[in-house]
């Protein structure tokens, strides 16, 4: 899903670093989000995604680096920049004592907007909440609260929507509805920065994927370019005669190898560069005194790439 990219990013992050004592949660990170695109932020726990989002949202001050929001260098008091941004956290973060429409209107008032109009009612309909519009939020299920949070975020008319795990607690129908709504928002020119652990969902939703590890971007590209191996190679499966465990240890030492797993008698190797590594892998196996019986190379899913890029010796790669 390629989109026409505007020259000026809505959000531009340069050299962003956040340290908590000796621990560096985000390390010299660069990131751009352009108008009308959905950017998926992926990474294992502790990769620095939440810290990055907190800094973008003005909830956490960076140790160093710059965040430019809507062309202006943002800081916590940049009210106009923050008025153009909306955030849906991973937690429910909803006022239980309110009724659904009242909750949305509370935020519309904060953002200087009039009470909900037909567009907002349409959002309720799109996310199957129209029957609950006058119901107390306390009676909502987790999934309904999640959808209401998204309605609230869109109803404040933002240019940039920041979402943390937007489809958590949603049933399959809800996931599809949310995905379609976010893609519609993208088509309307809004940008979405979404952080998630659900790789499959990000693959379906995002125009661009950014994979983080140890506070840095280790992989960036469109889901299709990553899948097609434009960024990284792929997965190689090897059947060998010899000591499989010993060979796996040796393979893990190779710089271009990400994840190494054993599946019955096969060794599955995720590689992190576009070159053909089969010869080097054969040599490595031979050096360990084993014999290659069969070797196949296959295309990869985003999950494979995620595992490769976030493995200990994954290397940074970018594509446009």
């Amino acid at each position: 899903m390629e989109t026409e990219r505007s020259a000026t990013p809505l959000l531009s992050v340069r050299g962003l670093t956040k340290e908590f004592g000796a621990f560096r949660a985000v390390n010299d990170l660069d990131l751009d989000v352009y108008p009308g695109e959905i950017v998926g932020l992926l990474g294992p726990n502790g990769a620095g995604k939440s810290t990055l989002l907190s800094m973008v949202l003005g909830l956490l001050a960076p140790t160093s680096g710059e965040i430019s929001l809507f062309g202006a260098t943002t800081h916590q008091e940049n009210r106009e920049a923050r008025r153009r941004m909306s955030y849906v956290p991973e937690t429910q973060a909803i006022y239980d004592e309110m009724i659904a429409l009242e909750y949305v209107d509370f935020f519309r008032e904060i953002y200087g907007l009039p009470e909900s109009d037909d567009d907002v009612l349409d959002l309720f309909e799109r996310l199957d909440l129209e029957k609950w519009i006058n119901s107390r939020v306390a009676n909502f299920s987790m999934g309904m609260k999640r959808r209401l949070g998204l309605i609230r975020a869109i109803a404040t008319d933002p240019d940039l929507i920041v979402l943390d795990e937007p489809v958590a607690n949603l049933d399959p129908r809800g996931i599809v509805k949310v995905r379609e709504l976010l893609q519609q928002q993208r088509d309307l020119g809004r940008s979405v920065l979404v952080s998630s652990h659900l790789l499959g969902e990000i693959e379906l939703l995002a125009d661009r994927v950014i994979v983080m590890r140890n506070g840095s971007v280790v992989l960036e590209g469109t889901p299709s370019s990553i899948r097609d191996g434009q960024v990284v190679g792929g997965r190689i499966e090897v059947e060998i005669a010899g000591d499989i465990d010993q060979v796996m240890v040796a393979l893990r030492r190779l710089p271009f190898v990400g994840d190494v797993r054993r599946h019955k008698d096969l060794i599955q190797i995720a590689v992190s560069s576009g070159d053909d590594h089969r010869q080097k892998i054969s040599q490595c196996i031979h050096d360990e005194g084993a014999v290659v019986l069969q070797m196949t190379s296959s295309t990869v899913s985003l999950e494979d790439m995620f595992l490769t890029a976030t493995a200990d010796h994954g290397s940074k790669a970018k594509t446009r």
Partner: peptide
């Protein structure tokens, strides 16, 4: 604790 403060403060509320 509910996370609503983060939502408010990420918007125009100081």
């Amino acid at each position: 604790e509910n996370g609503t403060l983060a939502v408010l403060l990420s918007g125009p509320v100081t």
